[in-house]
Design a protein around this nucleic acid. Structure first.
Lengths: 165, 165
DNA sequence: TATTGTTATACTCTATAACTATA
DNA sequence: TATAGTTATAGAGTATAACAATA
């Protein structure tokens, strides 16, 4: 991309290889989400935390697995979110060592707003494609993700979708 | 994704919406690159720094624009890379306030190795698609990126491709 | 003994504001 | 005055290692 995305006329733009295209697309989307999250004073990881909590009440430990972070990192992450009133720690009823983390109403409201924005952003990104091509793209991407998930375990992110059903 | 990407049988897996698919794909790729970079003791931003320098010798200021960071952040970024012997600061011949940053041989060698790995990773990700579908995907993605670049300015990342030609 | 979570510590990455040395 | 770069400072985010409480 680099200056290739600034100066050259569209007609001179050769088609990207699948590999380059995917890498670049991933970064465009990542930054899109990053900037949008920042408008809500959220980092990507805070957004993921709230996203994961939309349909779960995991322990600190489970959170570490879901987000693929060390448990000591989760402590600070949840601390900061709790300080803002977005999540709470509740003692586990079954294991007195454990804490369960859940969204507060404020947290749920915030992640809901942010999700809506993300959806809109990505929709806009796809606007230039006619509907049939959007479907084609979705189909191809689904196949890639399904195959990837089959090889690896959880790899959720799901800014826009963290549901477990 | 979440448990949806683990448990359910492939036949029961509904197709993702374009929006969800794209968001998830972006994160899968981002983490792929992040982990691969970590094997070389590189962060994403260090990787981007080296990537950008493959075909440029920007000043600190230009680097700030290219990477979309504050110039004070560039100081530390380049400090750490320089300490590892990956880049060097060279006084500008035309402006005695300026420094030009360039890759060392070690830096060039490292980013070259990392790029090769990234390319391979993404290739593997695309493996499940037959070649004709890979082409179709590339074409759709190219159109999305071209349209996006037309609206916005630079949005380079280009782990795998930071060339300016 | 093993597990859950926190703390202590250290490092990277980032920004804002103030500074220096040029221009 | 304005620009290029650094420094001082502060904070998020991450990991490793050591610890307390509980299982």
């Amino acid at each position: 991309m680099a200056s290739r995305s600034i100066a050259p006329p569209a007609t001179a733009r050769e088609e990207l290889t699948p590999v380059d295209g995917l890498a670049q697309l991933a970064f465009v989307i990542h930054r899109l989400l990053e900037r949008r999250a920042a408008e809500h004073d959220l980092s990507i990881i805070q957004t993921r935390l709230l996203g994961v909590l939309r349909d779960r009440t995991p322990t600190m430990n489970e959170l570490a697995q879901l987000l693929d972070l060390d448990k000591s990192s989760i402590t600070g992450l949840v601390d900061r979110a709790e300080r803002r009133g977005l999540v709470t720690r509740v003692p586990s009823p079954t294991d007195r060592r454990s804490l369960q983390v859940s969204l507060t109403d404020d947290g749920r409201s915030l992640i809901s707003q942010a999700s809506t924005r993300f959806q809109a952003d990505i929709s806009i990104l796809l606007d230039p494609l006619p509907p049939s091509d959007r479907d084609g793209l979705a189909s191809l991407i689904s196949r890639v993700l399904v195959a990837h998930a089959a090889h690896h375990g959880v790899d959720l992110f799901t800014t826009t979708d963290a549901r477990a059903h």
